[in-house]
Design a protein around this nucleic acid. Sequence first.
DNA 1: TTTTTAATTTGATATATATCTAATTAGATG
DNA 2: CATCTAATTAGATATATATCAAATTAAAAA
Lengths: 196, 196
Amino acid sequence: MQLSRIVAFHKTMGDPTRIRIIYLLSKGPLHGQAIAGKLGLTPPTITHHLHKLKDINLVYTRRDKNTIYYYLNERVLKHQAQTLENIIDEKGVLEEMDEVKDTKSEHYKVINNFFSADGKLKSIPAQRKKKLIIFEHLIKGLKKGVKYEEKEINQYIKQFHDDYATIRREFITNQYMYRENGIYEVNPSEMWAKID
Amino acid sequence: MQLSRIVAFHKTMGDPTRIRIIYLLSKGPLHGQAIAGKLGLTPPTITHHLHKLKDINLVYTRRDKNTIYYYLNERVLKHQAQTLENIIDEKGVLEEMDEVKDTKSEHYKVINNFFSADGKLKSIPAQRKKKLIIFEHLIKGLKKGVKYEEKEINQYIKQFHDDYATIRREFITNQYMYRENGIYEVNPSEMWAKID
DNA sequence: TTTTTAATTTGATATATATCTAATTAGATG
DNA sequence: CATCTAATTAGATATATATCAAATTAAAAA
C-alpha cells in the first residue's frame, strides 16, 4: 500500500458528514437528494462529499432514469481496516518509506516525474525501463493472493490513468499478474519482467 | 464508539507526516529530535503532530533524563481497525446515529461504558463479569511470548488507569499473566479466567 | 548558580476544505 | 421541441491546519 493512498483514505474519512454518508449507505443504496434530506444538507454539499468518497473508491454509482444511486464499496472498507492493523504487524505495508530506497534512486526519480502531485499518472513512459518502474509501482497497490475481477482491475487502474485497458494488458504481458477465466491475480515478484 | 471519536481518529491519520511517525514508532520508541531528523522536519512541527497523536491516545511518552521517548499505542490502532470493519457489520458502531442500540454485543457495551472517549478507563467495574471483560480488553494490548518487567507492565496499565498496582495484581489473579522472578508474561487465553 | 539540551509555545504564512447560493448541465418525459 | 428533475459546477466565505523561525520553558549537568 502506498503512503499517499493511506493518507487519502483517512483524510476522506476524517469528516463527520462523510462518515454519516457511509453509515447511511451501509444500510442500502440511496440517491443524492435522499442523502441530502436525511443529513439536512444541500445537494451540492452532498455532491462534494460523494466525489471525495468516489476518489477513494469507497462508493460507486448506478443510474436509474434520472436518479443516481450511490452504493457503498464494502470491500475497500475491509481492505483499509486490514491495512491499518498491518501497519504494526507486517513489514510490507509502507515499504516505500524504508530508507533503503534513498531519495536519489532512479526509481524514485522516475516515479516522481511521471506521477503528478495528486497521485495520478501523467503519462505512460515510452522507455521500457521507465515503463516497468511505473508498472511495478502501480502493481504494489494490489494485494497478493487476492482474486480480482477484470472490472476491479480497471477500476483500480483508472485511479491513476484513463487508459486502463492498455495498462491492464501490460500487467499481463510483463507478468505482473496472470489471468484465468477473467479472474486476475498478482504474480510473485520473481516472475515480473526484469527492469535491468 | 462516538462519531466524533471516529472522525478525530481519521482526521489525525489523514496526514502523511503523521503516518510516517506512526510507521517509525511501530519499529520502536524514538525521541522528538530523532523523529524530526528522520523526517527532515523541525522539532516544533514534530511537537505539533505528536500532540495530535496523543489526543487520540495513539502515542504515549516516557521521560528519560532530558529526553522524552514516544511510544506507539498499538491497542488503539487495532481497536480503530475493528471499528472500521464494524461500520458495515451493523454492530452499533455509530450508535448515536441510530436508535437501535440493542444489536450491540454485551462486550461492546461494557467496553464502551467503562472507557472514556479518549480511551482511558473511567473506573474498574465492580461486577466480576464486567471486570473480566475490561481486563481481557486490556490484556490484548500486550504481546504474547514477550517478557515484561514489572515497571513496563505498570507503564502500560497507567495509560488507562492510575491504579496500576490493583490491575496488575488482577492480571495475575485471573491468570491473564504469570510472574516469575519479577518478570511478567501473557498466558495463553485458555488459561484466562472464564467470563461466563 | 550557570550552562546545556530537548521540548514546547507563539506568531506568521500558505494552503486546503466544508458549506452555501446561484447558475448550469444531462437525461427523461410529454 | 419544451419542460421537468436530479446532479453538478462555479464562485464566495469561513474555518482549519501544516510548517517554520524565534522565543520560551523544563530538566539535567557542570
